[in-house]
Amino acid sequence: MEPTATAEFVAPPVAVAEIQDFDAVVQRYWPRVLRFLLTAVNDSDLAESLTQDCFLKAYRHRSSFRGDSALNTWLMSIAVNLVRDHTRNRRFQFWRRAERMAPDSDWAKDILPDRTISPEQRTLINEEVQAVWAATRNLSERQRTVFLLRFVEDFDILEIAAATGLSESAVNVHLFRAVRAVRKHVRSTP
């Protein structure tokens, strides 16, 4: 057999190539990270600040990103850690708990900017969304994170596991408990 020399261009993983242009990464993923943080924390100012922190951390550690997971998942794992750190820090700031009871603004104006639905329907949907939002406040930090990643970010179980660092079965258990609690809260709301 004659020796054959083969040369092959090994392209870096798509996600690794993507992170080279970090400006584009910021512009593409900012709304998603912000959306998750908006639902995870209380006020929009804090959510924006945490989003900035998230991208700052990602920028500083971009060389350590190996492309093992999708960039979205990686960014979300940073965001999840930030939220965890934040809630841990403010656990002692009991005076801030009053905020927890009231959402910082009305979600109604953000719901379905669709003129085809009637005001009654709109009010009904608004109440339901408020109920879901209030229900997530009562969840534990892990359950809430898993619930939001599943139903707001549309992550599948594997992605949630990658983003939170939990095992698949743990994600399943947390998600099941979260859904049951939220449904209970929503149904109990008149």
């Binding site: 709304p31 912000l34 959306r35 908006l38 639902t39 953000d110 719901i111 339901e128």
Partner: peptide, 14 residues
Amino acid sequence: SFRGAASTRAERLT
């Protein structure tokens, strides 16, 4: 609806 509301708010802030 919950997801849509969150998306709309995030996009508006962005």
